[in-house]
Structure formats: C-alpha cells, structure tokens
Design a protein around this nucleic acid. Structure first.
Length: 551
RNA sequence: GCCGCUAUCGUCUAACGGUUAGGACACAGGAUUCUCAAUCCUGCAAUCGGGGUUCGAUUCCCCGUAGCGGUACCA
C-alpha cells in the first residue's frame, strides 16, 4: 500500500496538466431550481448506427418521466468508443428521436447544435472533466495506472479459468494495484501505454442490496474488480462517465437498458469512490423477437429489419400508433386508460415505473398494426391525405405524383366510409393506400384483370341489370335510396332481397340482391371486395360509372 | 463455467395469501350486411416442474428447468 504522499506524486505524474479539482467542476454545475417531484432524466445512447426501435422504447420512458412531472429531459451522446462510431450517427439518433416526438429540453439537438447550461452533452467534449475526477481518485488512492498488456490479461484469464476462480482483474491478480511510484515512473518514462483503473475494495463474495425502480429490491454480489475507468486514449469507459455526468447534470433518475443491471455494484462503488450520492436506477428490459429456431432473442440490429426505426417510416406506420404500442408494452393498463379517455392523446397518459415489464417483451407486429389501424381510423380524410402525401414524398414517387395532382379527388377517396358510425379500419400503414387507389384512376383500373361474372348471372340478366341500373341511377341519391333501387331491380329480374326466403328455398330465385350488387361492383371496380359501392360510385361520378358499366 | 434477472392464455399482461384466474391483441363461431372491412355477441385458451410454509399459494420460501443478461481499454 502506498502512502498519501505517493498517491499525490503518482497523480501529478499522470496528470501534470490537470490543475482543477472536483470542487471547481461542481461550481460550474449548480443545483437545478426544481421541486422534489420533478424528474430530470436523460437518455444517453451511443452513435453506433441507425436508431433502434428498442432505443425509442427506452428513451420514451426517460422522456415521459420528465414530461409528466414537468421536469427536464436530456439527450446526451455517449461517444466514447471511436471504433464503433458511425458517420452521421449523432444526427440519426437526434433526428430519429425527434421524429417520434421525443424532443430534448436540453442536450444534443444535432451534431452541430447543443442547448442547455449543463453541457457539453457529447462525452467526447468532456474529457477534461473526466481527467479531473480521475486525478482526484488517483490522489486518494482509489484509482491507479495499470500498464498491463492485452496478452498478459489473456494469460491471467486462462489461469483463472483453469483454477476455477472468478475471472477478472482484481485483488492478487491485479499486479499494478499497489505499484510504487518508482515503478510507475519507470513505465511512464518508457512511454508505455496505460489505463486508469478503479482501486476496488469491495468483497466479491459479499451480498449487496439495492432498489431498482422497475425490478424492486434486488441483491447482487459487491464489485471487486479493478475496472478500467479511463482508457489508454484518455476516453472514459461508460462506468466512469455515467456517475460523473449524471451527477453534474443533476439527473434525478437513471433510466437505462437492462444490460447495465449487472454492473450496478460497480457503479455504486465508483459513486462511493467519487464521494457522490448514488442515483436511483430504472432498468428497462429489451424488446425481443422469436428467432428462426424458435428461441427468444433481442431485436437485432443486423438481422432484423424491423429493429431499425426507418423500417416503420418506410412502411408508413404512423408514429402515433408505434408510440401507443410501445407505451402499451411499457404499461399494459394503457389500454384501460385509453378506453376511459378516448379523446385524449397518448402523451397525456402517465406511465409508472413499477408496472414496466421485468423480462423482455416480444415485439408483436400484429398488435402494433392494431394500434396503428385504430389510430388512422380517428383521422379525417384530409389528415389521411396529408399523412399519406408526406409518406409518399419520401418513399413512393408515383403515388406522390398522383396524390399531389389530384388532391380534392384523393380526399374524396379517403373519405369513403370514414364518416359516421361505419368507420373503415383496413389501413394500418400509409403504404396500404397503394392497393386502394386502382379503382379510382383509369390507368390503374385498366391494368386490372377483367373478372368473370357470377355463374348464376346470365348474359341476359347482365344486360338487364346494367340497363336498369343506369336508367335509374342518380348520384345524388342517399345510399339507402341507392340500395332500395338496386333491390327493386333485383326483384324485377327474379333476384330476391329476402335472405331468409332465399335460404329456405334457393331454387325459387335466380339469386340474391347481393349477386346483382356484385355485378355492379365487378363492372365498376373489377374487384370482388371493395368499400361501400354506393360511395365509390359517388366518388367516381356518374359519367365514369356509366362508362365502366357499358364497357 | 461463474454471477444475476425473469417465469400467468399464442402474444402483452391483471389479480392486499381467499377471484368461476380478469382484460387487450390474435384466433374461431354467430348476428348484421350489396362484397370486404367495421360493429355487436359468444367461444377457445394460462398460473414452467417438484417440494415446502399455511385452514388456504398465481402470490411467500427452497430445489430444478427454461429464457434472457452480465462476466471488455463496447456501450
């Protein structure tokens, strides 16, 4: 064990240019002027690729916690691993989150913009801060330089495995743990690479209990590993940056992925070494899916296209539906709340941490689509038009052109069965419109295959149905009147509108009114299944209807 | 391997130690209907296994099993 003086000497040797101490830093980050119940949360992703749907899921928790308490939500970027960093990664995160309505009160707005008084919010810009705390720790004997090589580390691990003891750099195995000033000086003079490690004094066998805001009271073994705090390039590892940043930014609740759960004892020890108060944690489980072999696994960045939020944009799932679905996984009582608050938006719903699921939820596309369908059903025709237009602008040039050139007409199309009590729910994503437009545009209509008529319709009947329909058709008719007319035509030609009578004695009739309507449907739309035929005809206009019927 | 977390219908989940184990999505059937969709009704369907504790266990404890996570100069 080194003496106090030696620690000071080592600290000075390692960090000759660091003149500040933690107190100086704390002064720059004054306490926030907030009340007890107001949450300050942060979401702190790494810019390592596209925005993962699981990232949105976790960010949503931090965001809602802050919003529902009138607190502050911060986006901090943890760009401390230059090897994994991706071009434009920061913008992908910031913009993507913003697209889902998760807007930062403070923090990173884009790769070139940050707002707030507690920055910088990019960890790569905070290196000098970490150095101050690292130096302080070294000077107190709670951290030390370690010159061990990767090869030596590998050797240690092998030995530990052979001996059947816990692996890791700790205790007796940590050969630089108690190195003298002289030995360290020698290495520094040789310009050897080194990292700064925590001088752990935890007992790895001892129980350690803490309360997780999601999981409840839990116990783990205490940390005993001399973890790396500062890498040889001077960048901090997550474990070191997290206590410092979250303390300085006055975060009240740490929301983070479940993968951090197991390192909580380490974080507690670092907080303690730093002489800082620990923060309450909420560990959020990842989103899962069933893989090819039938096993459960985390939604994977590489294997699963649906892990990328851009997939949802490209398919045209409304972000409101996606968000509602995620909230529903978070707190399943959302649906009950929604039933009692039909007019309210999901962002008025308050989530509670204790209700968040503790293992990993399977991502259920069917349910996601159900939420999206319900959401789209609440929109007006004009809103649908605008949303589809936005989507098409990005992802479907032809649809975009068609929509922009026929605005009024398209709004009429989207209005079919959108008003009144019979609301269509056949659209769960914007791209669904692609297959719904062909009835209404001749170029698309003409390329549809010409269907054959129902078997019980003779050529004679066909001719009569069409003639009689055309002569009585008035586009101004109410759809009830429209149908009465179709019934009348049917009856006059021997097709019944009395379904019970038909069921009892089918041979008495040529068919039902449905068969007659089907003839009209097939002639005007070339499809067996369509929305309300009367409404379709109104949109098409009499001229077009007559033309198609006669053809 | 070691350490830990988790375990209720197919899925997401609800249930002060006492419920016919509830809801939602999905599915099936029915009603309605010009087809489809919608809507309404009905149905199907679960406490991982084994031990305890208790008058009584989905709930508490132990063991097992499975899934997941951690065991990095990645986050």
């Amino acid at each position: 064990m080194n003496s106090k003086e030696e620690f000071l000497q080592i600290a000075e040797l390692l960090f000759p240019n660091v003149s500040e101490n933690p107190e100086d830093i704390f002064k720059k980050y004054p306490k926030r002027n907030l009340d007890e119940g107001q949450y300050v949360t942060r979401f702190a992703p790494s810019p390592t690729g596209f925005l993962h749907i699981g990232t949105v899921f976790a960010a949503l928790v931090a965001f809602k916690l802050a919003k529902q308490s009138n607190g502050v939500y911060i986006l901090r970027i943890e760009d401390t691993d230059k090897n994994r960093e991706v071009d434009n990664g920061v913008n992908l995160l910031a913009q993507g989150l913003k697209d889902y309505g998760i807007c930062s009160d403070e923090g990173v707005i884009s790769s070139s913009e940050q707002i707030g008084d507690y920055g910088p919010y990019m960890q790569s810009e905070r290196l000098d801060i970490y150095a101050v705390f690292a130096k302080d720790l070294v000077s107190k004997g709670r951290a030390y330089p370690c010159f061990i090589t990767p090869e030596e580390l590998e050797e240690i691990r092998k030995k530990q495995e052979d001996m059947g003891v816990r692996t890791g750099y700790y205790g007796e195995w940590a050969k630089w743990r108690d190195a003298s000033f002289e030995d360290i000086k020698k290495e520094i003079e040789k310009d050897s690479k080194f990292v700064i490690r925590l001088y752990s004094n935890g007992d790895g066998e001892e129980e350690f209990t803490f309360t997780d805001l999601v999981k409840g009271k839990k116990s783990l073994k205490k940390n005993s590993i001399d973890s790396v705090l500062l890498k040889s390039d001077g960048y901090p590892v997550y474990h070191f940056a997290h206590p410092i940043d979250d303390t300085l930014m006055h975060i009240t609740n740490v929301v983070r992925g479940d993968e951090w759960f197991a390192s909580t004892p380490l974080h507690y020890e670092i907080f303690q070494a730093l002489e800082l108060d620990v923060l309450p944690y909420a560990h959020i489980s990842p989103l899962m899916k069933i893989d090819e072999e039938g096993g459960k696994r985390k939604l994977s960045k590489r294997k699963d296209p649906e892990a990328d939020t851009r997939y949802y944009s490209q398919q045209g799932y409304p972000k409101e539906g996606v968000l509602e679905y995620l909230i529903n996984i978070l707190n399943s009582n959302y649906q009950d709340w929604k039933r009692g608050n039909k007019e309210k938006s999901y962002d008025e719903f308050k989530i509670s941490l204790e209700k968040i699921n503790r293992s990993g939820a399977l991502f259920d596309f069917v349910k996601l689509e159900s939420f999206c369908r319900e959401y789209i059903a609440t929109l007006s025709a004009t809103e649908v038009y605008e949303r589809v237009l936005d989507w098409a602008k990005e992802y479907d040039e032809q649809v975009f052109k068609r929509l922009s050139e026929n605005k009024e007409y398209c709004i009429k199309i989207f209005n079919i069965e959108r008003e009144g009590k019979k609301i269509r729910k056949d659209m769960c994503k914007w791209s669904d419109v692609v297959g719904q437009l062909d009835i209404f545009f001749d170029d698309l209509f003409n390329s549809l295959e010409i269907p054959s008529m129902p078997e019980n319709i003779s050529d004679e009947d066909l001719k009569n149905i069409i003639e009689e329909f055309i002569s009585s058709y008035d586009p101004d008719d109410d759809c009830n009147v429209w149908f009465e007319k179709v019934k009348a035509i049917s009856e006059s030609l021997g097709f019944t509108s009395d379904y019970n009578a038909f069921k009892k004695n089918p041979s008495k009739f040529k068919g039902k009114v449905g068969d007659v309507a089907m003839v009209l449907r097939l002639k005007t739309t070339r499809k067996m299944q369509t929305p309300d035929l009367c409404e379709i005809m109104k949109v098409l206009g009499k001229e077009k209807v007559v033309e198609r019927l006669k053809n």
